[in-house]
Structures are given as structure tokens and as C-alpha cells.
Write a protein that binds this DNA or RNA. Structure first.
Lengths: 333, 333
DNA sequence: GTGAAAGCGCTAACAA
DNA sequence: TTGTTAGCGCTTTCAC
């Protein structure tokens, strides 16, 4: 790691390191002539400041962390783009950290931020996260945190979320309008905000239509897609099986397609389906998938904006709620 | 950023900072009793070493970079998991950097590594990358680099690739065996190794079967999915349209489905399709998608392993070629 | 077995 | 306008 340092530039130009440092940061106390000489040499030698020295000295890293369950999900990959679109502009690096839906991993990741590695954290919690203590612990160290999409009620940090309950209510109502009489709900672990809120919306719609939500129509799916598939097939094999499904997360839709295929059930004739999904190819599935689509990019950008505010010592709104868009395609009709 | 530092521990225990440091690193010069006291206090105060100080002092960051075009692609998301499975174990952090298929972005990212920010780089180049100069420039600074999947011939670094030409040849042969007489090839920019190699395999298969590859049957797709769709539709609207398609990257498959839908062409009756893809849901698409699947996780893990070797100052194989798996489903038949 | 001190590269008071 | 100096938190000689 033979580096070009400020000291090297100083020696070369017979100037002091502080003069170089100031020139590089375009300080007004340095003459234009000197600045030019310094900048020219720096460019020629491909000088690049050592980020660790700057961070150590300045006690800030200009890094922020994006802590998410996984990356193989359209919502998160779009949200990442939204986040980086604002952080980049502000001169911050974004470090993507994956929890793989594991509470322990998430705790370990946040614990590793107790030392100034990042100046702020954007997080969407894992499906197995049981409490917000680890996030509060980080905040107690003075690290600004913003939650997005999958939030936790017991964390006093700004949150960017979708109107999950209303969206799920609309989605369920759509299936009811199309004649469904028994609708199942596929969620993730019930302690997850998005899962709970979407479930609440689903139940509200049922009640509004004088149906009683039944526990056996409500599935909590986990990380194992094989097991999830089995559970869905079991659900659809009952004699009085559901004729409609509201799926709360993207990765469950393909499983419903597969289960129906294997059980020779037709979508939408036998089972109608609508799914929360940012999948670009929803319209290309056969039959095309009706979706509730969150504005993923915007949510990421908004969350990053709030974090920037927080890091600048300013106050930020504690809750931003954005609307999801319901797109009716073939699977629900 | 009120931090627990070594100095704080030293003050608390009335020991010197160097003793604390040694105790924390389990040095043999420190008594067991002292070690225990130090470790106990460190745990109690939630001490976490400042990574910037360590990196500055030790002139190594224990960070590696994963530089890839995008994350919304099954191959890359799986490869990331493969990479982190080995880096994590070795105590390295992985920083994911997205080039968005942009050469300039890729250059900027690598340039930012000329200062010790990372100890090594894993890279799969963007579709618009024109030369390996920026990578060689980084290597000249002494930063170890390993390329995977999308490699560059003019970079003297270890590479982990799939047997692209052979796989494409087999895929093309499969379509020929199923009666295709005019097969199109959808690739990315021709300067991309995977695109060029897969194209070569496709052409070889055609020639072996006494067909002459035709330029107008070979499409170079870019970053814009809308334009790609248009190009595919134009291809399929010809009177003497192709009756088979070999698609070189995952994101092109949905476009072919959509184009066929819009043009009322049936897959596989009118157009047979096989695609390089690590998509988990390939089997659930309608019709199910025949695929050439690369061992993405393993490739990531292997590449990371080579990088670890390089960073340890050891020599590493210059080329590792792994086999892709052809899975025949409905779309090709 | 423990401690003092130097220095990684950079920035910012303060001096000149 | 430029230079001197101290110090960010840590590791590592070298001395005791």
C-alpha cells in the first residue's frame, strides 16, 4: 500500500503539510498560485486522501449503513438506488449490510457500529427481530437512525413507511369485489410491522364485509421457501379452500403460482391472487400478477434525506407515510 | 460519538494503554489475571475498537470491495452471499459498490480505492467498460484484484468464470434439437466477456449444424429495458422471424415473454427460449423457463477465496472455470 | 508482566 | 499567506 500522502506532496513542493492540506480543501488562507501548484501535483501523482486518517481525525466517517434483510428483493434493490441517489450527492458512502432475516446477525451488525464506523444508519428490520433494544442501544451512542418499510414501534427514530393497512384493505376489498368468499392472508412473522399492519387491513376489509377472519386462513411464512410452499399447498388442499389470497411480500407470489400449478388450480378462476410486490416482471407472469406496489425508490430517497437531516443536527419528521399503488391485472380478476 | 476507547479502559483499570491493547489482542506478555480484568471491563462498557485508528495504524482496513453492475439480479445477489460467506469468516467486511453498468461510475469507484480504503477488490465489470486500465491502475497501487463472471482479458488478475462458450453452445444445440431453424442471440454489449463468449458458443453450434450466423439475428441489449423490449419486438415482427432465442442474461427473459405476449406469439410453439439465469422462479414462469444456471454462490465463494490468498501474499490460480447447469423446462421444448 | 513513546495521515489551532 | 504543533485511537517497539 505505497501511498501518496500529503507529506509527499509537501516535500515535493517544499511546502508544509498544513499548507497542502488547506490548499486541497480550498481554504481562503492559501494563495491561488499555491493552490494551483498543489492541485496540479496532486492530480499528477494521483493523490487520494486516506479516509481512515480523515475519519480518525475528524471523528466522522462520511459512511452510512443500509441494513436490510436481503438484496434479492425488488423493493430493497430499488430502495438502495433511492438511498444512494441522495447519499452520493451529499458525499457519503453507503455500506450495504445484509441480515439474512436473522435477528442475531442484525444485532451483531449494529453492535459493530458502536465505534464510529458509520455516521448514520438506515434500517429495515429482519423478520425475526424481536425488539428494538439493539437499535436503541446504537442511538444511545449518538448514532442517528432512520427506519424504513419494516419498522419497530418501540424505537424512537424517524420512520418511512407505506400505508400498509389501507393498501391491504383495498387489496382484500378488490378480491371481495371479484366474488371471493374466503380469502387467505400470507404474511411474514406477525411481529413484523408490515406483516401486522397488512394483516390488520385484511381483517378490517373482511369485517367490513361481514366476514370473520379465521386463524387457519392466516399464514406466517418464514425464511425457508420450501416450507412456505408446503404450507401454502396445505392451505389450498383443504376441501373448503380459500378462493382468494392476499400475499404480503413479494417472494410469496411465486410460491402461490407454483402451489396452484402443482395442485392444478387455476389463477384466477379457482384462486384469485394479489401481492405486495415491486417486481418489474409482475405484468409478464402468467397470469399477470395484480400487485400493491410501494414507491421503493422514493421511500429510500426520503429515508436517506431524513438521515441527512439528523446527521446535520437538524430535526426530522418522525413519521412519513407514502401511498402504495394498486395495479389490477389478471391474477385478481 | 462518545466512544469507549482504550484510554478510558486504561484509566478505569489504572493500567497503561499498551497493556490494554496487548490484553485485548491476547498477547502472551500479559498475565491471565490482567487479561481477564480487561476483557471483563471491555465487555461491560461495550468497548469496540475504532476501526479507523486500527486501519490507519496498521495500514490495512480489513475491508474488501465487491464491485458489481447491479444487485437486482439473481446471479449477483447469490454471488454476494457466496463472497460474504468466506470474507466474514476471515474477519473481513464486504463493501458492495454498484456501477449501474456505467464505465465512468466504475472508474470513479476504483479510483476511490487508491488510498487503502479496501485491502482487495472483487469485480464483475460493467457492460460499458471499454478497457481494463482502471483496474490495472488499482493493481499498480498494490491492491489485489480478482475478477469474476464478467472479466477482462487485458487484466492480469485471477478470474473466476463459467464455461460460457460451451454452455451457450449446448443451449443453442438444445433449441436446434427441438427443431429450431433460425435462432436469435440476445446479448449485452459485445465487449463484455460473457456476452462475447456466449455469442461464440452460439455461433459455433450454428456452424456445427451448417447454419450461418446472421448479424441481424444478434442483438446487443443495453441498460434501457424499454429499448431492449422494442428491439426484441422488432426482431420478432419480421416475416422470417426467429423460431428460437438464446438469451445471455437473466434480465432479458422477461422481455422475451412480454414481447411474445404482445405479439401473440406462443412460447414454445412459435418461439423457443432458453436463458442464462439464476432466477429461483424460472420454473414458475408460464411457460416455465429453460435455463443455463451458473453456480453463483460457489463462484462468489471461490473468487473470495482467491482474493484472500492474494491478500495473504500467496499466489492464486489465474483462471478458475466452473460449469453451468442446463435445465430443460417448457420454454425450450 | 507492564509502561513510555513514537507514529500511521490528516486537520485545525495558533504562531509567525 | 505559510508553518509549527498537537492530537484523533490504536499498535508496536523498546525499556524497565
Amino acid at each position: 500500500m505505497r501511498q501518496v500522502t500529503i507529506k509527499a506532496l509537501a516535500r515535493e513542493l517544499r511546502l508544509s503539510v498544513s499548507t497542502i492540506s488547506k490548499a486541497l480543501r480550498d481554504s481562503h488562507e492559501i494563495s491561488d498560485a499555491t493552490k494551483r501548484r498543489v492541485l496540479e501535483l496532486a492530480a499528477r501523482l494521483n493523490y487520494s486522501p486516506n479516509p481512515y486518517a480523515s475519519s480518525l481525525r475528524g471523528r466522522k466517517s462520511r459512511n452510512i449503513a443500509i441494513v436490510i434483510p436481503e438484496v434479492a428483493d425488488s423493493f430493497f434493490s430499488l430502495a438502495i438506488n433511492g438511498i444512494t441517489s441522495v447519499t452520493k450527492e451529499k458525499g457519503y458512502h453507503s455500506i450495504i449490510c445484509l441480515t439474512h432475516e436473522d435477528y442475531k446477525d442484525e444485532q451483531d451488525i449494529l453492535k459493530a457500529f458502536h465505534n464510529g464506523r458509520v455516521d448514520g444508519v438506515l434500517i429495515s428490520v429482519s423478520g425475526t427481530t424481536e425488539s428494538g433494544a439493539h437499535i436503541r442501544g446504537l442511538m444511545d451512542q449518538g448514532v442517528p437512525v432512520v427506519l424504513f418499510d419494516r419498522v419497530l414501534p418501540d424505537v424512537p427514530a424517524p420512520k418511512v413507511v407505506t400505508d400498509d393497512a389501507a393498501s391491504a384493505r383495498n387489496a382484500t376489498q378488490l378480491l371481495l369485489d371479484h366474488g371471493c368468499r374466503r380469502i387467505a392472508f400470507l404474511g411474514l412473522s406477525p411481529q413484523l410491522s408490515i406483516s401486522a399492519d397488512r394483516l390488520a387491513g385484511y381483517e378490517a376489509a373482511l369485517r367490513e364485509n361481514h366476514y370473520q377472519p379465521k386463524a387457519k386462513d392466516i399464514l406466517s411464512c418464514g425464511a425457508g421457501q420450501q416450507q412456505n410452499l408446503l404450507a401454502i399447498k396445505k392451505l389450498l388442499r383443504q376441501k373448503d379452500r380459500p378462493d382468494g389470497i392476499v400475499a404480503a411480500v413479494e417472494k410469496l407470489a411465486p410460491l402461490v403460482y407454483q402451489a396452484c400449478n402443482e395442485l392444478s388450480l387455476r389463477i384466477p378462476e379457482d384462486v384469485k391472487l394479489i401481492c405486495f410486490s415491486s417486481l418489474e416482471i409482475a405484468g409478464i407472469l402468467q397470469p399477470s400478477l395484480s400487485t400493491v406496489t410501494q414507491p421503493a425508490f422514493e421511500m429510500g430517497a426520503k429515508a436517506a434525506g431524513l438521515l441527512m437531516k439528523l446527521m446535520a443536527g437538524k430535526r426530522a419528521e418522525m413519521e412519513v407515510v407514502v401511498s402504495a399503488e394498486l395495479t389490477e391485472r389478471v391474477s385478481s380478476g
